[in-house]
Structure formats: structure tokens, C-alpha cells
């Protein structure tokens, strides 16, 4: 088993990556799709506005990118800290 301080560093790095990911997750769904929609009202997308597109399409595409990016980043982090299998 790796030493305690390295495990703590690994966990802190993981939490940082999760934190950044969830900020993007929030902005692209709750933000663009709901709360910030009025601000995006002037940007036209195929008969409606960008907020509508994010609420019904864009957010889902962002979620996909986020999960795969997280998985890739964590694979790298696992190796760096020697906790991969």
C-alpha cells in the first residue's frame, strides 16, 4: 500500500478534478439551460434560442464529454500515484 500522504494527495487531486467538472456540468445544464437562458435569448439556433438548445441537446453532449474526460484524467492520475491496476 502506498503511503498515507500520497493517498491524501491523490484524493485531493481527484476532488479538484471533480470540482472543476461539476462546475462545467452545472453551467451547461442548470446555467445555460435554465438560469441563464434569458441572457442567451438573443443567440438564435434553428427557430429558437441557445438556452432551449442547451436544455434539450447541448447539456447531454457536454455530459458525455465530461464523463470520458474525467475517466481519462483519472486513469492518468491513477498511474502517477501508482494506484492503478
Amino acid at each position: 500500500m502506498a503511503n498515507q500522504s500520497d493517498n491524501n494527495a491523490y484524493w485531493a487531486a481527484n476532488k479538484r478534478i471533480i470540482g472543476i467538472s461539476l462546475v462545467i456540468w452545472f453551467i451547461c445544464s442548470f446555467g445555460f439551460g435554465i438560469l441563464l437562458r434569458p441572457l442567451l435569448a438573443s443567440i438564435n439556433v434553428g427557430g429558437t434560442d441557445l438556452g432551449f438548445w442547451f436544455a434539450q441537446q447541448g447539456s447531454i453532449l457536454v455530459f458525455l464529454v465530461l464523463i470520458f474526460a474525467y475517466a481519462a484524467k483519472m486513469n492518468k492520475l491513477d498511474k502517477e500515484h501508482g494506484v492503478d491496476e
Binding site: W25, S29, A55, S59, I60, F63
Partner: peptide, 10 residues
């Protein structure tokens, strides 16, 4: 429904 049932996977 669209955002909720997909965003949970993140």
C-alpha cells in the same frame, strides 16, 4: 426530464 435523466450519470 432530458437534463435530469442524463446528467445524473455524471
Amino acid at each position: 426530464y432530458l437534463m435530469g435523466w442524463t446528467g445524473g450519470y455524471v
